[in-house]
C-alpha cells in the first residue's frame, strides 16, 4: 500500500518530458506556435514554458488543465489581449496565424483582433440594444448602410442560434436576456465581424446546464465555418465537443492529440491522472 502510494506520488513529482507529444492531428494549420514562452513580469518568471503546437483550421481545439496552468494566458496570446498588461510579453518563440507572425512590427493589432475574435468567460454585452450590440463590430469597421447592418445582424444572430428568440425585440436592452442568451449574443457579436478564428475562454462556466447545452450545440455548428479554440475546465465538455485537445500543466504542454485518443489512450501518465480525476 505504502509502496503503491509512493509510486503514484513519484509519478506526479516526476519531471515533465521535454518533448510534448504531438500525435495524430490532421488538417491545414491555422495557428502555429513555435517554442512559445510567456512572462507576466518582464521575463523574471515564465508563465508559459516553451510551448509548440499547431491548431488546424475549421476544427474545435480544447485546452484543458488544472487552474493556473496557463491555458487562458495562452489563449489570450492569440489575439494579443495580453498587450493590455504592461509587463507581459512573449519571451521566446513565435506565434503564426495564417502563416504570419503576429508579433511582427508591421502587424496592426487592430486588424489582428478583427480576424481573431474572442468570447469571454463572463458574458459582457454592452448596455445597449441587441441590435446595437451585434452591429458594434461592423460599425467600428465603417459599415454605415442600415440595410447592410440589418443583414449582418440577422446573419450573425441566426449563426448564433438566437434569431428566433429575439427577432421581434431587437431594440430592447441586451440585459433583458437570460444568461445563456447573453452569452450567445456575445458569440453573435463576435461572428458579426466574420473572423477566421474564435477564441472562447470558458464560455459556459457562468451558465446553467441547459444554457451550456445550447452553447455547446452552437459551437458544434460554428465549427463548419470558423476555427474554434476553447479553454475549458470541464473535461466532459472537452470530450463532447472538441476535435483535438491539449493538456497543460504548470505552464507546460503535456500532451496534444485528437480528443478520442487523448481521452481513451493518453500517452502521458500525467494526462491519465488528470483525466481520471486524481488531481486538478
Amino acid at each position: 500500500m505504502v509502496i503503491e502510494m509512493n509510486q503514484e506520488t513519484a509519478t506526479l513529482g516526476k519531471e515533465t518530458p521535454d518533448e510534448p507529444v504531438i500525435g495524430r492531428i490532421k488538417g491545414k494549420t491555422m495557428i502555429e506556435c513555435n517554442d512559445v514562452s510567456f512572462s507576466y513580469d518582464n521575463g523574471k518568471t515564465n508563465t508559459l514554458d516553451h510551448i509548440s503546437l499547431d491548431i488546424p483550421e475549421k476544427q474545435v481545439t480544447a485546452f484543458i488543465g488544472p487552474s493556473g496552468c496557463g491555458k487562458s494566458t495562452f489563449l489570450r496570446c492569440f489575439n494579443r489581449m495580453n498587450d493590455l498588461i504592461d509587463s507581459a510579453r512573449i519571451t521566446s518563440g513565435s506565434i503564426n496565424i495564417m502563416g504570419q507572425d503576429i508579433h511582427a512590427p508591421e502587424v496592426d493589432v487592430i486588424e489582428l483582433r478583427k480576424q481573431v475574435g474572442m468570447v469571454f468567460q463572463k458574458y459582457n454585452p454592452f448596455p445597449k440594444s441587441i441590435y446595437e450590440n451585434v452591429s458594434y463590430g461592423p460599425r467600428i469597421q465603417g459599415v454605415r448602410d442600415k440595410k447592410e447592418l440589418d443583414a449582418i445582424v440577422e446573419r450573425s444572430l441566426k449563426g448564433a442560434a438566437l434569431w428566433d428568440e429575439v427577432k421581434d425585440r431587437l431594440n430592447s436592452s441586451a440585459f433583458g436576456l437570460s444568461g445563456g442568451q447573453q452569452q450567445r449574443l456575445c458569440i453573435a457579436r463576435a461572428i458579426a465581424v466574420q473572423p477566421h478564428v474564435i477564441l472562447m475562454d470558458e464560455p459556459c462556466s457562468a451558465l446553467d446546464p441547459i444554457a451550456t447545452a445550447k452553447v455547446e450545440e452552437l459551437i458544434m455548428e460554428l465549427r463548419e465555418k470558423y476555427t474554434i479554440v476553447i479553454v475549458t475546465h470541464s473535461m466532459q465538455q472537452a470530450s463532447r465537443i472538441s476535435d483535438n485537445t491539449a493538456f497543460f500543466y504548470l505552464g507546460k504542454l503535456i500532451e496534444y492529440d485528437t480528443t478520442k485518443t487523448l481521452f481513451s489512450t493518453p500517452s502521458q501518465k500525467q494526462t491519465e491522472d488528470y483525466i481520471s480525476g486524481r488531481f486538478g
Binding site: 489575439n79 493590455l84 487592430i110 475574435g117 463572463k122 463590430g137 467600428i140 456575445c186 457579436r189 463576435a190
Partner: peptide
C-alpha cells in the same frame, strides 16, 4: 465601468480611443 466592456470592444477590433 466594468473592465469587460473595454475588453469586449477591443476584442472586436476597436482602437483604444474608439
Amino acid at each position: 465601468v466594468p473592465k469587460g466592456y473595454r475588453e469586449a470592444s477591443l476584442a472586436l477590433g476597436a482602437t483604444k480611443w474608439e
